[in-house]
Amino acid sequence: MRRVALATMVLAVGCAPAGSSSAAGSSDGAEPPELFGFGSAASAERVAMWDIDVKPDGEGLPPGSGTVAEGEQIYLMQCIACHGPTGTEGPNDVLVTREPWEEWPAGRTVGGYWPYATTLYDYIVKAMPQLTPGTMTADETYAVIAYILYLNDLVPEDAVMNAETLPAIEMPYRDRFVPDDRTGGSVIR
């Protein structure tokens, strides 16, 4: 990769103040540079290769789509062993809540707790299936998300998930998540 020649650029500016955190002293009394230039420029291709996260507004969702029916087939092949036939049996995380809980939350299921549907894509495409993570295509990921949402009664049986429909899903408990209000001091929160 191309080396970034930034240090010399900055030295030309003259006595620029040291970087806010570059507090190291120098042996000959010279000011440390504003920028050191150690490292390489990241190409757009390189960034695109690793920048696979998905934001709540859908930024980062790739092209592609999947249906509930397609997702059911993937679920039966890839997910059922850990999450059970209907997403409620385990042995790993319970995924499904169909009825509202008397006292919220009684678990951390998708339908009963998760505040953002986009998190499903961000998580599944990176971390699932557990023994072969990162192997599902965009279409497969959308499909299995459609099926999980369907199991949670959050989308109808004919739903199609894609970069437009997934971020539009209103998760039922999103508004219950509040920022940390602990501040130290004398109040116990």
Binding site: R108, V110, Y116, T119, D122
Partner: peptide, 18 residues
């Protein structure tokens, strides 16, 4: 809003908030 800052490592309080 990754999985480990939504589904996990959030703290349900009394009063139905997390």
């Amino acid at each position: 809003m990754t999985r480990d800052e939504t589904s996990r490592y959030t703290d349900p309080l009394k009063g139905g908030l997390s």
